[in-house]
Design a protein around this nucleic acid. Structure first.
Ligand SMILES: [Mg+2]
Length: 170
DNA sequence: GCGACAG
DNA sequence: ATCTTGTCGC
């Protein structure tokens, strides 16, 4: 991995604080934390009659949404779909596709839940951890948790509330 | 025991 | 997720 700056310091604690402050300002100025430059999107096909499916990952430059890279992996679906265990079905092919990516993204978007999961470890959590990258679960429907009714307008939102007791999800 | 249940 | 039938809206 490339290291972007000298990381051995001969400085006083006061200088260390000054350096830290300037680095923190640089992070904000360059949007290193808030503005990803490369965003990955991953999904998987339905298996064919023989159980063969494909996992795909696209890398887009952000915010231009310019296509940077596409990788696809093919293999057999071994695990059935069981609510709460989707990552055991989908993550192998997703990770296989990600293994061949050259342009490492800053963020991965995933078609499934992340922490909105009975054990707080859905597909997006699983893939994000195994890639050691920030990941956002972009599920199209709810696995567990409840929310107040949504407005009709586009972009309406509500907090998804999870039960504190994980074995007592609603 | 019953119902709910990402993809 | 897919498949099939019926219905809805442009
Ligand atoms: Mg999907």
């Amino acid at each position: 991995m490339r290291v972007h700056a000298l990381h051995e310091w001969e400085v006083s604690t006061a200088q260390a604080r000054e350096i830290q402050l300037s680095l923190a300002r640089r992070v904000v100025a360059e949007n290193i934390l808030t503005e990803p430059r490369l965003v990955a999107g991953v999904d998987i096909s339905a298996p064919d009659a023989q159980g063969i499916a494909r996992g795909a990952v696209v890398i887009l430059r952000y915010p231009e949404f310019e296509l940077v890279e596409v990788q696809v992996a093919t293999g057999k679906m071994e695990f059935p779909y069981i609510p709460g265990l989707l990552s055991f079905r989908e993550s192998p092919l997703i990770l296989a596709a990600c293994e061949t990516v050259h342009n490492v993204p800053d963020l991965v978007l995933i078609d499934g839940q992340g922490v909105a999961h009975p054990r707080r470890f859905g597909l997006a959590s699983h893939v994000g951890l195994f890639l050691d990258l920030p990941a956002i679960g972009c599920a199209k429907s709810i696995l567990c948790g409840r929310h107040e009714p949504l407005g009709e307008e586009a972009g309406a939102h509500a907090d998804l509330l999870m039960m504190a007791n994980q074995s007592e999800q609603r």
